[in-house]
Design a binder for these strands. Structure first.
Length: 232
DNA sequence: AAATGGTTTCCTGATT
DNA sequence: GAATCAGGAAACCATT
């Protein structure tokens, strides 16, 4: 009966390790079993149970594991949001994860979905896994791309500049360079600032960006997250 | 297989 | 005149 759940909704995500070992296979195999001390017979460790069947305690243990393993800042996690069963956890959307744990929520959501589809083999190589998570978290949305560029001086090289850090107001300094970089990300060498800015204008409607009536100046709106200084 | 979201492309017109 | 801004309309494409 575990098996029937094991291959559920999520399609395997291209780049991850061994496809489709069943959960029972995985957990009877020492290799996949890291150095954890466990466990009472009545309440086994979270790694030995499919996420859908986790108890509140399992969820808690999983959170702990993720914090330790991936150095997630436990302070940004609202633990009361996670006082839930595995079934409830699995039904949370990415939005809800972000609401409950900010940027860490993105990681947690990603890790959970991969565990549901791939099992614990996901954690084979912690180092590689961490790198891959980072890759996959490379946000594909334009506003996130802009945000991340703004947040990483190395990549940025003067393309974007904060106008008012507190209020999330920024300026596009090198418009063509920005378009080129966005084009590279989307593998589209026909991208121009003209077209990119059209996409940015659509964000006014959804509250991701707010209008600032100065040329090449934009402002993050109430529905944009992850740009503020204090909450990493 | 159809619906949807997030752009991409193109365009006309106004503004700086 | 050149670069931007404003949006409408439609095509496109990946995901659900």
């Amino acid at each position: 009966m575990l098996d029937s759940v094991a291959h559920s909704t999520f399609l395997p995500n291209a780049s991850f390790c061994d496809p489709l070992m069943s959960w029972t296979d995985l957990f009877s195999n020492e290799e996949y079993y890291p150095a954890f001390e466990h466990q009472t017979a009545c309440d086994s460790y979270w790694t030995s149970v499919h996420p859908e069947y986790w108890t509140k305690r399992h969820v808690w243990e999983w959170l702990q594991f993720c914090c330790d393993q991936y150095k997630l800042d436990a302070n940004c996690i609202s633990f009361c949001h996670f006082n839930i069963s595995g079934l409830q956890l699995c039904s949370m959307t990415q939005e809800e994860f972000i609401e409950a744990a900010g940027v860490c929520g993105e990681y947690l959501y990603f890790i959970l979905q991969n565990m549901r589809s791939q099992g614990y083999s996901f954690f084979n190589d912690p180092e590689e896994t961490k790198a891959t998570i980072k890759d996959c978290l490379q946000s594909s949305h334009l506003w996130e791309f802009v945000r991340d560029l703004l947040l990483s001086p190395e990549e940025n090289c003067g393309i974007l500049e904060w106008e008012d850090r507190e209020q999330g107001i920024f300026r596009v300094v090198k418009s063509e360079a920005l378009a080129k970089m966005w084009g590279q990300r989307k593998r589209n060498d026909r991208m121009t600032y003209e077209k990119l800015s059209r996409a940015l204008r659509y964000y006014y409607k959804t509250g991701i960006l707010e209008r600032v009536d100065r040329r090449l100046v934009y402002k993050f709106g109430k529905n944009a997250h992850g740009w503020q200084e204090d909450k990493l």
